[in-house]
């Protein structure tokens, strides 16, 4: 491998993880395993670190700095920012769900209990503001 090889591999791995995370968010398998990008950053850091230890030149040192920064940022995002405190959902399997009436996008009121006897219902709570 050329003397820039490991550094290029390291940077490519980091960039690939970023592109993969943002462009494959719609793929449930990728989306539901956010640790994958952290593993990729850690691997990129390890490759750059080995290369830097063998020959401390600027390409591998730069790659090491980039991958370490991404590893720290990515870990902070995944383990701190995206974490949600444990919540005690008020619904229980086998019991009726709490009823509610809320306006739809056109302002018409929708009552959960009105679907009884008509169809199954999937209630999705989501954060909005995306």
């Amino acid at each position: 491998m050329s003397k820039y090889g490991p550094a290029l591999v390291s940077v490519a791995l980091s960039l690939g993880a970023i592109v993969g995370y943002f462009s494959l968010l719609r793929v449930p398998l990728i989306r539901n395993h956010p640790l994958l990008y952290i593993v990729a950053f850690a691997l990129a850091a390890a490759i750059a670190a080995v290369a830097a230890l063998r020959a401390p030149r600027w390409p591998s040192l730069t790659a090491l700095a980039i991958s370490l920064a991404l590893l720290i940022l990515g870990s902070y995002f995944n383990f701190v920012m995206a974490k949600i405190p444990q919540s005690l959902i008020a619904a229980r399997v086998g019991q009726p769900a709490p009823d509610f009436t809320l306006p739809d996008a056109k302002g018409a009121p929708v009552t959960l209990a009105s679907f009884r006897g008509r169809s199954p219902v999937v209630v999705v709570f989501y954060r909005g503001y995306w």
Partner: peptide, 9 residues
């Protein structure tokens, strides 16, 4: 939350 036709979770 998935409810059946009877409103049971």
């Amino acid at each position: 939350v998935v409810l059946d036709r009877d409103g049971i979770v």
